[in-house]
Design a protein around this nucleic acid. Structure first.
Length: 498
RNA sequence: GGCCCGUUCGUCUAGGGGUUAGGACAGCAGAUUUUCAAUCUGCCAGCAGGAGUUCGAUUCUCCUACGGGCUACCA
């Protein structure tokens, strides 16, 4: 049962992918809606026709869905306050604007952008580099002037008439009491000359009209809030509660951008992060439940989340911690699900024609591999890299070829012993000496004992030969899955180095 | 420039007039181990600076510094 008394919204502008910071904002809104059994609205703020990119709307919605964020009202599913795209709500904004003009709370401005630019320049010269605001030239226009201008079809914008000297006060749930004097805000434009509203106007109108009760958004909007408050006031509307979320910054404290690595939710999905891990990590950016809990299930998050616990300090994005969290979530994920994810990625990245394939990429095999690597993967991508030699021929890098340069005879001896022992195994699963890890291990241990060395040393030589790398999944299990034939092929191929 | 906001280990944070300032990630060391991980144990590390209030400030107030945001016919 939805509680209509709690309505929140996430209002992205469709200019690109879903940014990690926007995702956090969306998620906090969603968490709050879930906790309160409220309504979560998705609204597209596409009033800037220049920057707007149509296909990013689907991109954003896909990312949200992948993250587990669903909405009760939105552009795709409609709702009682449809439409949910601002570009389709032009009439609504204009009605409000006309009302404000009629009540002398707003006025038409016929100044062209060029003219405004001149004014700004002139003003800068006069008063140094001080703050400059619109000089209200068009406020002085008589009704006759306006009628004339209108008749000539001159372009105009609509500006809000801002009170000269008034304290604007509001309480932000995270930031506390905030107070700004209206004298520092100019008569800002609410309707552009193309008839579309500007952000501060459309956001206020929509939040009023859609009966939004809690505005949860990034801290970059904190400074815009007084302007919106002025609109609420001009319209005599009830205020929502405001909650601003601290910014998410890059590791150097600068605004999160491409050079900090991945910043789109899409990218994290492609790298093989699980949505649960992203949710958990995002929740920890600007919010904390208590002094020790860091791992939360979604249910716990919904239950424990509270706007009052949101903090104000900007948070730096810590990729390492995300990796750690993701590893934890992977270990708790069902093998079948992991198999599918790995399978999907492997297939996607597989070269079209590849003569190096030693084994078809199939689910059954991947499912067998999972237990070997589950504890050592932090992302699906990492897993794929680690297990790639199961499917592709080993390519020995120079450093690996010459790995035993200084101990050639010992390495050759180990390898030859191993080959001899393994050849005694049967490929036939029904005989007693099947090629199983539990049976392979003691045999290699015997070799180690015989040569008076550590099993570790034996494993090192065999691993390099078998995997072409210093690191591999557990050796014996790897050999079992690879099979006797392929295992021996690789060992023999490598022994030719000596 | 003006206005708004912020500042606890490298990072995310808990705390809050008297605490050995707590946890987690990372780092380091050890245990375990066929590698790498995982796991466990231990270690390292912090209240931006200066005044004031107070018996006592990391906590309250002010100033400074630093950081961020807004100041568009962007959102």
């Amino acid at each position: 049962m939805k509680n209509e008394n709690i309505r929140v919204r996430f209002a992205p502008s469709p200019t690109g992918f879903l940014h990690i910071g926007s995702a956090r904002t969306a998620f906090f809104n969603w968490l709050f809606a879930k906790k309160m059994s409220g309504v979560f609205v998705l609204r597209i703020e596409d009033t800037d026709i220049e920057r707007h990119k149509e296909d990013t709307i689907d991109l954003i919605m896909d990312s949200l869905k992948w993250l587990g964020i669903t909405w009760d009202e939105g552009p795709d599913i409609g709702g009682i306050f449809a439409p949910y795209r601002q570009s389709l709500r032009k009439e609504i904004y204009n009605q409000y604007a006309q009302k404000l003009i009629a009540e002398k709370r707003a006025y038409r401005c016929f100044c062209s952008p060029d003219k405004l630019e001149e004014k700004r320049k002139a003003s800068t010269k006069d008063k140094g580099s001080d703050f400059l605001k619109y000089d209200r030239e068009c406020l002085k226009l008589t009704d006759e002037d306006i009628a004339n201008n209108l008749q000539y079809g001159r372009n105009y914008t609509i500006r809000l008439l801002v009170p000269d000297d008034r304290e604007i006060n509001f309480t932000d749930i995270a930031y506390g009491k905030i107070s700004v004097n209206s004298k520092i805000v100019e008569d800002f434009i609410i309707i552009r000359s193309n008839g579309l509203p500007t952000y501060n106007f459309s956001v206020a109108i929509d939040d009023i009209q859609m009966k939004i009760t809690h505005v949860i958004r990034g801290e970059d909007h904190l400074s815009n809030t007084p302007k919106q408050l002025l609109i609420y006031d001009a319209l005599n509307s009830e205020l929502p509660r405001f909650v601003h979320l601290p910014m998410i910054l890059g590791s150097d404290g600068q605004k999160l951008s491409k050079r900090h690595g991945s910043i789109s939710i899409e990218a994290y999905r492609d790298e093989g992060f699980l949505p649960e891990a992203i949710q958990n990590y995002l929740a920890l950016l600007g919010w904390a439940y208590d002094e020790k809990t860091t791992i939360f299930s979604l249910e716990e998050l919904v239950a424990k989340f509270s706007l009052e616990d949101i903090n104000k300090k900007p948070a730096k994005f810590d990729y390492e911690k995300l990796l750690w969290l993701n590893g934890g979530y992977i270990r708790n994920t069902d093998d079948k699900i992991l198999s599918k994810l790995i399978y999907g990625r492997l297939i996607k990245s597989a070269p079209q024609k590849n003569t190096d394939i030693v084994s078809g990429i199939n689910m059954a095999k991947i499912e067998k591999i999972i237990p070997l690597i589950k504890e050592r993967m932090r992302t699906i991508k990492e897993a794929c890299e680690l297990i790639s030699p199961f499917f592709y021929k080993v390519r020995y890098a120079e450093e690996i070829k010459n790995f035993f340069e200084n101990e050639k005879s010992e390495a050759a001896n180990i390898l030859n012993n191993t080959i001899t022992v393994l050849e005694a195994f049967s490929d036939n699963q029904t005989t007693s000496i099947t090629f199983k890890s539990s049976l392979i291990e003691p045999e290699l241990k015997k070799i180690a004992d015989k040569l008076g060395i550590n099993l570790r040393k034996v494993a090192e030589v065999v691993r390099i030969a078998l995997w072409g790398a210093k690191v591999s999944p557990p050796l014996f299990g790897t050999m079992e899955i690879l099979g006797r034939t392929e295992t021996l092929n690789r060992l023999k191929a490598y022994s030719e180095n000596f």
